[in-house]
């Protein structure tokens, strides 16, 4: 198996799907001539031409709506948000149109569209360019929310997202685009709503997604040195959530910490904790804890930024707390 970067894996997914179906096109800011702000669309314009890799002006609401309108009449757009921070300008189109047109019309339309780009924190970008909006999208019926943590998952999940007939919010990470991982030559797809056990263990369940998976894995390695076997569950899709995988793990470990990059208030971690409480209450030997970003706008200064974000140390401490050690 070849080892490639996250951005290459995502690039392959788009190229393969554009090759497979001529109704698939890519639209966004700097996706064409510039080859993508983060080079995820490198070479796609050269390969597929300017009619299928479309540069837009800086008008997120406008081009998000253009994508949705084109999906109403049979195209399958991939709309790149340079970062998900800018998707806030497009939220009316995403929430009121992409998510609801099928329902409001009694099923007359399919909206096969992917909104993809990096979300979450990046280094020293301050409050407007460094935030995790996962729960905003998860709160909306009609949307699917996927967020991969490895190049392998990224490719298989993005291909699935493009082929799906529903609007998919696909959240990547600026700081993971350079991560390398093994990706097979042959085609594969990763289904929506199916999580992955990134590390088996029997003492505690750590639930994490996107780059928090790597924080959880590092924490698990530290815990292992103290003979604590942590199981790391990556739900991969946040909506619909693979709650069965999480519940099965908690029934085995009886303890759980959820690690999320988003803010704690009404976050995805709160949802997961509520579901575990409802479905596996009798299995729990300790309260479920969450390690989130602090409930603050992201500060610029490196030392403050580091303090605000979840860290390996915070995860280890939370794990020990629920293990009562």
């Amino acid at each position: 198996m070849a080892e490639i970067t996250f951005r290459e894996a995502l690039n392959q997914a788009m190229a393969e799907e554009m090759q497979r179906d001529e109704n698939v096109y890519l639209m966004g800011e700097e996706v064409g001539y510039y080859n993508g702000a983060y080079k995820v669309s490198q070479g796609l314009m050269e390969k597929f031409g300017a009619s299928r890799v479309i540069d837009t002006p800086i008008a997120e609401l406008g081009f998000a709506g253009v994508g949705i309108g084109s999906a109403m009449v049979g195209l399958r757009p991939i709309i790149e948000m340079m970062t998900f921070n800018f998707s806030i300008l497009a939220l009316d189109q995403i929430i009121n149109n992409a998510a609801k047109l099928r329902y409001m019309s009694g099923g007359q339309f399919k909206i096969p569209i992917v909104f993809r780009g990096p979300g979450g924190s990046a280094h020293m970008l301050a409050a407007q360019h460094s935030q995790c909006l996962d729960p905003w999208f998860c709160n909306v019926p009609g949307l699917i929310v996927m967020t991969p943590s490895t190049p392998y998952d990224g490719k298989g999940m993005l291909k699935t997202a493009i082929r799906d007939d529903n609007p998919v919010i696909f959240i990547e990470s600026e700081s993971m685009y350079g991560f390398k991982g093994e990706v097979p030559e042959e085609e594969y797809l990763i289904p929506i709503g199916v999580g992955d056990i990134k590390r088996g263990g029997s003492d505690i369940t750590l639930v994490a997604w996107n780059k928090m998976v790597h924080v959880a894995m590092e924490a698990a390695a530290i815990l292992e040195k103290e003979d604590i076997e942590a199981e790391v569950i990556d739900p991969r899709t946040l909506k619909p959530l693979d709650e069965q995988m999480i519940v099965t793990s908690v029934e085995k470990t009886n303890r759980c910490v959820v690690i999320e990059e988003g803010w704690p208030y009404a976050g995805v971690g709160a949802e997961i904790a509520a579901r575990i409480s409802a479905l596996a209450f009798d299995s729990l030997d300790a309260p479920i804890l969450r390690v989130s970003s602090e409930d603050l706008p992201m500060p610029y200064a490196h030392n403050l930024e580091k303090e605000v974000l979840p860290s390996v140390d915070k995860v280890v401490r939370a794990a020990k707390k629920v293990l009562y050690i």
Partner: peptide
């Protein structure tokens, strides 16, 4: 809200 949608349908007409 429907104005970008109309624009997208027109985009699809040209695309196809």
């Amino acid at each position: 809200g429907q104005i970008p949608l109309a624009t997208g349908m027109a985009f699809a007409i040209r695309y196809k």
